[in-house]
Design a protein around this nucleic acid. Sequence first.
DNA 1: TTTGCATTTAACCAAACGGTTAAACCATTC
DNA 2: GAATGGTTTAACCGTTTGGTTAAATGCAAA
Lengths: 205, 205
Amino acid sequence: MKQLKDTSTEEKILEAAKEVFMKYGLYGARMQDIADTAGINKALLHYYFRNKEKMFDKVFEGALQKYFTQMDVFGDTTLPIKERIFRYIDNIVNFLSEYPQMTMFIIKEISINPEMFKEKVQPLKKGRGVRFIQALEEEISTGKIKKVDSVMFMINLHSLCTYPFIGAPLFKHALKANGKDYEKDFSTEKLKQSAKNFVELTLGK
Amino acid sequence: MKQLKDTSTEEKILEAAKEVFMKYGLYGARMQDIADTAGINKALLHYYFRNKEKMFDKVFEGALQKYFTQMDVFGDTTLPIKERIFRYIDNIVNFLSEYPQMTMFIIKEISINPEMFKEKVQPLKKGRGVRFIQALEEEISTGKIKKVDSVMFMINLHSLCTYPFIGAPLFKHALKANGKDYEKDFSTEKLKQSAKNFVELTLGK
DNA sequence: TTTGCATTTAACCAAACGGTTAAACCATTC
DNA sequence: GAATGGTTTAACCGTTTGGTTAAATGCAAA
């Protein structure tokens, strides 16, 4: 019962901290706001996580871990390259639709404090995009797919899969002004199909 | 000499305010930080812009105006649709590469305070994307281009043009881990070509 | 030179901020 | 039921925050 209550409070705080830090960033977030969101006394924040910076680190490291773990799954080497990319698309679109704010959170914070990247990402990152680009260039050299700019292809594919979630607030209003509805006219399945179509058309043969 | 000095100070403040607000957002920005960046006394901020909120409003409204003015240029109706889209791509990629932080700034702040959108965007926005999607659907109905999902096409094209700048901090590190170099292997011209190629392949015929 | 007025500054203020503490609480153990 | 020890709280502290003020500065007209 003891341990259960402990982790419960600690996780309530962590959940609230995620929410507030993701919305306002390290400098914009207020400890009182986190406490209110968690529905607990402010002093408990310091009881479980000494101070604001340490609490932020926990949240940010958790986000990095989750993000780079998911975004680096470029599985089964025995599959044909297109099938690998298709599964990669399914995987990251599912992930990004579940955590639409995470990408911006990470980008914002590392652009404010670039040293964090070296400290926290380099260790856990054996190389995002490495397997993707390498695999692509190998397939190009064997002539199985069209000669494409591997860097631009990787950037374009990530753009297609990522920005629809980041830019949702803009798209929602732009579409409404157009008699369209983001919730109705956009879907993750349509997006997956678009992205796969892009791959097919670009790598084609 | 009087008027010249006035506007000079006021613009120094506005420039500094843009920089700091874009980096930290409304809540994360510090008035002292803005004053230091502008190289002037903190009290001058209140002399020229009564308080933080009013100063932020000026900066944010300026950003909105610039953004939606540029992103809504979908010019010459007499040109063929593909040529119109190509020019649109040139236009927004040039703009986004010049102000790479602006998109995120706008998205972040309107997702924190959605009412601002209605207050500040609706008035100056006769309908972003309206002309784009409408023109597209007209061309589809006449059979001049392939039958595509106009909403998804618009989202995908904006993703291709926008995210490479937003995600630059991520791409830089991902590419470095890969023996590539963002500054060398990515360029706005390559991006324009990619986007136009996407249009060609998607709308084809 | 002096007057008048916009601009700039240092000093200051109350409120909000992150953080601490001592006491209260509460479930478990003896 | 008394003692133990982890958990929670209200009250508090020093600093930073946005904002104000009165005095100083500088410049142009009289």
